[in-house]
């Protein structure tokens, strides 16, 4: 069985760098890519009544958009290469979900990019990369 690499991908430039890094590793080792897109979501947030009414509809739209606009182009790109790719779209806390996806898919590594935020920002707002390093069940690579 080939080694799987979970890549946290949201379409950003940083995520793109992580993807390129992961693809290079996967090619070298004959591994596969798990392209993971997590939509930040908490079941304890507050919504207005009209947001409640539309939630199911919006979720469907968000999933479709993620599939088509974010993950779709990458998958199309990678099918030409020798690397096999599967996609996962989830709702939840980003770092927590990436860890969960790694466990579920039996991946050997999680690879994420990071925005060049300052130490102060990371301290105040928290950062996905930082949380992931603390909580991930498998080794992590942070691509700057």
């Amino acid at each position: 069985m080939s080694d799987k690499f979970v890549v946290g991908y949201d379409g950003s430039v940083a995520a793109r760098r992580a993807l390129e890094f992961a693809v290079a590793r996967a090619k070298a080792q004959g591994g596969a890519i798990v392209l993971a897109h997590v939509l930040e979501w908490s079941p304890y947030s507050f919504l207005t009544p009209s947001e409640l009414e539309e939630r199911h509809m919006r979720r469907r739209e968000e999933m479709e958009r993620a599939e088509e606009a974010v993950l779709g182009p990458v998958v199309a790109e990678l099918t030409d290469s020798s690397v096999s790719v599967e996609t996962v779209i989830r709702y939840g806390n980003i770092a927590e979900m990436l860890g969960k996806i790694a466990t579920e898919t039996g991946a050997v590594q999680i690879i994420v990019g990071r925005e060049g935020s300052s130490a102060l920002e990371a301290r105040i707002f928290g950062s996905v990369a930082g949380t992931l390093v603390q909580t991930a069940p498998v080794p992590c690579t942070i691509v700057p």
Binding site: Y44, S45, F46, L52, R59
Partner: peptide, 22 residues
């Protein structure tokens, strides 16, 4: 008791919180 696959849908907490705000 919430199915994790339903993440992103309206949770019990959210329905309660919205009703309470009214």
């Amino acid at each position: 008791y919430s199915d994790p696959d339903d993440a992103g849908e309206v949770s019990h907490f959210q329905a309660l919180a919205t009703a309470l705000s009214g």
